[in-house]
Amino acid sequence: MKSVGLEWRRRWYLKRTAPGPLRDYYAGPFPAPEQDYRTVGYVAVDLETTGLDPRRDQILSLGWVVLNGPRVDLKSARHQVVRVDGAIPAQTAIIHQITDDQAAAGQDLAATLPVLLADLTGRVLIAHHAKVELGFLGQACRRLFGNGLLVRTIDTQVVARRLLDRRDVSYRGSDLRLHRLAERFNLPRYNAHNALSDALTAAELFLAQAAYRDNGKGLPLADFLC
């Protein structure tokens, strides 16, 4: 029922946010949970970070792509490396293949975040294991715009778990990883490992999950929300 209350909270946030990108974001009504998911707009987002703690760690890069109902619009794909303060921990650099130089050449998060917020306006956020994205984006919004991020969210990992639970099959934690699920649904494999390719995979995974649940008559958005 918390998703029903979300629209009310949005209006409350709207009043309490200073003019700027975040306030503009809150000015757009959230999609209604009872709306057919095929008529809703989404933004699939993936972040790469220096660690898992939003308070201590930093965002290294953002990738996102917009979905119009059951279509991923590749024209909207964005990828942005973010300038970070200090050196990137070696471990993180290896995973994300982002070097200090690249990060230094990156854009200020203050310049990137408004673009993402504009795309998110009136749309639903999709992420795989969304806790990370919500944590870091919320922290960034608080730091840059003075208020947290409230957004309707679909976590493809949660949807995957529900699908598996419903079918009463046993699975392991690793079966819920993005790339394992992508393989199961016969999605393309991208060799590059970056925020945009993972965001795109999450978007495609959502299409696949929706296709598996939808018998052709459509479903309410609420069925997918966290």
């Binding site: 059951p70 279509r71 991923v72 590749l74 795109l200 495609e204 299409l207 296709a211 598996y212 052709g216």
Partner: peptide, 18 residues
């Protein structure tokens, strides 16, 4: 690539989609 959208159909779905 910017001129394309991605769509997904599960096995046994009519093609072209309605």
């Amino acid at each position: 690539p910017g001129q394309l959208s991605v769509r997904y159909f599960r096995r046994g779905t009519p093609f072209p989609p309605p």
